[in-house]
Design a protein around this nucleic acid. Structure first.
Lengths: 232, 232
DNA sequence: ATATAGTGTGTATTTATTACACTATCATAA
DNA sequence: TTATGATAGTGTAATAAATACACACTATAT
């Protein structure tokens, strides 16, 4: 059975849920598979893990192949091992998620690997049908970041280096799927004292210029112990 | 290389950190290995996962072999895949943790498998040197339950069905490694309204009888959304 | 009878969360 | 030039939660 597997280097794979945030919406990078099984289906980028590399390295490789970027924030999510998740037998997958600054990507081309016909950003609330159990994996990834943004500063991984408080709030709103109160959000965020006010402003299309902030990395770590919560 | 592996059914293993709570101390169940590699060393119970079983099933099997119990609370922890974690090559392990009511075990014998010479409860603050990266796995498991007891009622999995508030508090203190204020602890715990006061009391060795409580399972689920925190 | 070990209880203070509405600025269209 | 619309930015009062803190009671053992 294993002899049928393409690129047989291992009996397990890794898949990565790559999140991006653009224009107020959370998005996931999906590939159109160019190999069996599920040829032509949309799927998470992922592949068999080589015997000579760690799982982390395999994920970094996948991220680089699909974004041309290195040093992206990523974290292990869960290992899925259902008997029927893969048509070729019980092949487990170690799933990761990654958070990407979409603006970093603008100038970059989107490299395509030999096993993917194309890679496309899909808004989270409008996903196509997916190969394997990948829909399930994405759901688990969302649950994870929903919790995690309340006790660690991972949200900033999705924003450009300089961002407005409105952008930050929209990101929290997108991930939690509910509106927050602007004044309470700002009060709390600024109270954490991890943001540095910049002397710069950002102007939108037809509205007032907005103050830019950036994360103060010296104070970054402290937040890891706090829980951020917002009721509205 | 694979031909050297005992019980070759797969190229990955699962290991389980089994926690118990007894006499105010957190304990972990360790086995003394009776097979190479690390023969004679202390290690987490774990084994190769069969091609025909899910990872969850493999862990349940391990739990049953070592405790004689079924239906134990368990959850996946993390998948470890360092290149050097296993002397026989890059063999990944999907680690789980389980929470056990030690009093359930009293009448039960402790079954011993063919690959373990003995299984012994070790207090967490006094562990022997361990095989593979098992010390690292245990550390990660502790971090996990430290966080998790503050937003989900998993702590009750470590207590007998009927318990006193003092026992509950001692458990939180053992997991967090710090003392809590008795009055504040009780106030908060009872406010969550998930405990049912029983008409029974428990008497200790030389002290006043203490009120027994049990978890009210109807209200159990609500707590999953709350965060429990205690400063002292 | 006395010492010991553990149970159970209340209040005041501080801090965090929540609810809520208007003005200023800029860009655009009339 | 003026009006309109979209967005930025700001404060306070009410409520809820977290915190700090000490003593009296009971059962048992000596």
């Amino acid at each position: 059975m294993q002899a049928n597997l393409p690129h047989l280097q291992s009996t397990f794979t890794t898949d990565c849920v790559i999140f991006g945030f653009h224009e107020g919406a959370l998005k996931v990078l999906l590939i159109e598979r160019n190999e069996y099984p599920f040829k032509g289906w949309w799927a998470l980028p992922g592949f068999f893990v080589d015997h000579s590399e760690t799982i982390d390295d395999a994920v970094k490789r996948i991220l680089y192949e699909h974004t041309g970027l290195r040093g992206i924030f990523m974290e292990q999510l869960y290992t899925f091992g259902d008997l029927k998740r893969h048509p070729q037998g019980r092949i487990i997958t170690v799933a990761y998620y990654a958070l990407l600054r979409l603006d970093d990507l603008k100038s970059q081309p989107e490299p395509v690997t030999d096993y993917a016909r194309q890679a496309v950003w899909h808004p989270l609330d409008d996903l196509p049908e997916l190969a394997f159990d990948h829909r399930h994996i994405i759901d688990k990834a969302i649950q994870k970041i929903r919790r995690k943004i309340s006790y660690s500063p991972i949200a900033f991984e999705l924003l450009p280096e300089k961002f407005t408080l409105t952008q930050l709030q929209q990101l929290y709103e997108a991930i939690w799927g509910r509106k927050l109160d602007k004044r309470n959000f700002r009060k709390k965020m600024l109270n954490y004292n991890i943001l540095k006010e910049l002397p710069e402003f950002q102007r939108g299309v037809s509205y007032r210029a907005a103050r830019l902030y950036k994360l103060d990395k010296r104070k970054y770590a402290k937040v890891f112990q706090n829980e951020l919560t917002f009721s509205r």
